[in-house]
Design a protein around this nucleic acid. Sequence first.
DNA 1: TCGAAGTTTCCATAAATGTAGAATTATGGA
DNA 2: TCCATAATTCTACATTTATGGAAACTTCGA
Lengths: 114, 114
Amino acid sequence: MEIEIALKRLSALAQQSRLEVFRRLVQAGAEGLAAGDLARAVDIPANTLSAQLVILVNAGLARSRREGRSIIYSADYDGMGALLVFLMEDCCQNRAEVCGPLAAAVTRPSCNPV
Amino acid sequence: MEIEIALKRLSALAQQSRLEVFRRLVQAGAEGLAAGDLARAVDIPANTLSAQLVILVNAGLARSRREGRSIIYSADYDGMGALLVFLMEDCCQNRAEVCGPLAAAVTRPSCNPV
DNA sequence: TCGAAGTTTCCATAAATGTAGAATTATGGA
DNA sequence: TCCATAATTCTACATTTATGGAAACTTCGA
């Protein structure tokens, strides 16, 4: 992954409300959440949230689609996975000290559903 | 990990020169690098770099120690590992879509030295 | 005790970011 | 066609962040 993209994604996550929004999107799964519902859930004015969502989408961490009058946002798992791989490989050079705790997390059952 | 700490670490990495500095520190390994050498390597004025290093240390991504007249900086692997675990577990809920590519990375030989 | 090397702190300035009111656009129902 | 709903874009303002010159601090060798 190019550094510029990694920086964009890191910046997108490095902000209180955007990180919370992203987590909610992950929880919501593939169906996603309408912008309005999201705004109510995180208690942020619709236009402010809209600006945050633009940043997440632009960073490749979320997607949007229209459904009637609503616009539905969902987490971009591929984008997030690629960021984690970048941090692990390019940034940390697969150092055992960093891999260790992560290997434990990645091999947990929740991470490998049947 | 607390959200606040995660945000601090993400912010610390979400900046061009700091990300580069962190990568160099990872490359340098446990011995680390003197602030001055680092400044020359990344071509940044000493005082500017110093401010960046404060941010990395404060975020728990780097450590410093004095050696004679020099101050040696090194990457904090534990801090970085914890951030990755946070992103994987708390943030992404160990979703298989995100774990997948990461599992591949984590099981590579370079990540599990003899 | 002095001076040089290495680094940080102080400070001011420029640039980027976050926020939300008001206006605008798109959609669907009456 | 008209209205209400859902969301975005425009705009301005306040806050935060990045940057580097100058001064100060610490360490070591002469």
